[in-house]
Design a protein around this nucleic acid. Sequence first.
DNA 1: TATTTTTGTGTACTATATACGCAAAGATGT
DNA 2: ACATCTTTGCGTATATAGTACACAAAAATA
Lengths: 238, 238
Amino acid sequence: MCTIYAKMSFKSEQHIKVAVDAVVFGYIQNHLQILLTKQNHGSGIPKWALPGGFVKDNESVECAVSRELQEETGVNVNYLEQLFTFGSVDRDHRGRVVSVAYLALINPRHFILCTSREDMETEWFNLDEIPDLAYDHKEIIEKGWERLKAKINYQPVGFELLKREFPFSDLENLYQTILNKKIDRRNFRKKIMSYDLLLETDKIYQPKSGRPAKLYKFNHRKYRKLEKDGFHFEVKFA
Amino acid sequence: MCTIYAKMSFKSEQHIKVAVDAVVFGYIQNHLQILLTKQNHGSGIPKWALPGGFVKDNESVECAVSRELQEETGVNVNYLEQLFTFGSVDRDHRGRVVSVAYLALINPRHFILCTSREDMETEWFNLDEIPDLAYDHKEIIEKGWERLKAKINYQPVGFELLKREFPFSDLENLYQTILNKKIDRRNFRKKIMSYDLLLETDKIYQPKSGRPAKLYKFNHRKYRKLEKDGFHFEVKFA
DNA sequence: TATTTTTGTGTACTATATACGCAAAGATGT
DNA sequence: ACATCTTTGCGTATATAGTACACAAAAATA
């Protein structure tokens, strides 16, 4: 980027477009879901794809994702991190496109799907029922899924997928769903509780049947403070 | 990238260039070093910067880094991973450039610095003696450095920085240098040895003074095999 | 009031991490 | 040849963290 005068002048043409794509996870009814969009009136056969689009000249790549998500799906993400940049030559048959993919987590409070684009459909898909996708989006989802599985073990990102106040069993189920394995309830609770990052509310949740449960909320403020002091969240049930 | 017909046609112009930059680490004389380049005959005041350059239309982003490294520095990296994509609007004063940064590790066997560009200088810099850099390259190095520190704990990337055959103490010193802390020699050796991933050669290394040391080499083949079976390398001296 | 479902909790055992010091091998200087 | 210096190579005891495991309490339903 810096050493290019000799090879390619700034005026010389490079015919590559920069796009963003988002792998948006939601945890809905005890299932991990992904947000997909489909254009109804595009040319050719419409296919499901990740929300995303081209970056504008005057916005940062990060801003581009947020904007596209807002425009296409109406959801507000409460966690967004860069995932990977996909740059093979032929990933888009229409021309050369380099796409910066992001991983986003949303919380059920921000669920109102409403696209501002008339020619577009937006829907949640169960992770194991993803349809055929456009371009290399299957691969992007794969990477996002891997990242989420890894990340949940060493950063408290799981909470971003839950309601602000949740019964402890929701957290358990979330981890079991994401890691796709049974976790010992007592050991899990012991580990999480040992960090003292859950605030007990005085609210009670009554499940369909069974004993009522206390509602907890994650103490973001305390976590940020601890993090600054070198604290390292870790829940390893590998 | 997929949902763009309505917003921006494929023909419509986006004025963003795509570049690559590489944070290349070498471990030379017990010091972590970074490879920098400087153009001698560029317009304006030349500044040191990371090796890198624009991606060509017909090469993948990953290929672009390798090519640029080869052209600008002549080194062969033996480890290359994508680091982060830097996409703020004003990171390059000459125009809008989105840069995909890579982390590279090189092994002293591939040291012969020889740029094929006449207008360019290439040099190793000690990590704590990095000069003023062009653009946001300081920040990119910071990110690469963070990644390396984190990665060395859960992937055997350290070996990529050593000679193929090395005395055990080189590994010790490398870890101490990267993590910037003293590590208990016995515990470190015990941990590393417990994985049984070092092959003892029959060669002996004679240090300037002191007892001679056996030379080891890392068993890449065995590691790959173990990794496939779910093995997880981990050296945590946090 | 018996049955079902879900929450909430403790202890013994195992494995891993940490702390710690000394003898052996060679090089150098006298 | 002997004393000194430097670096390698190694084991054990203690503390900490992980794992395995079962039963009673609270509410809903029949």
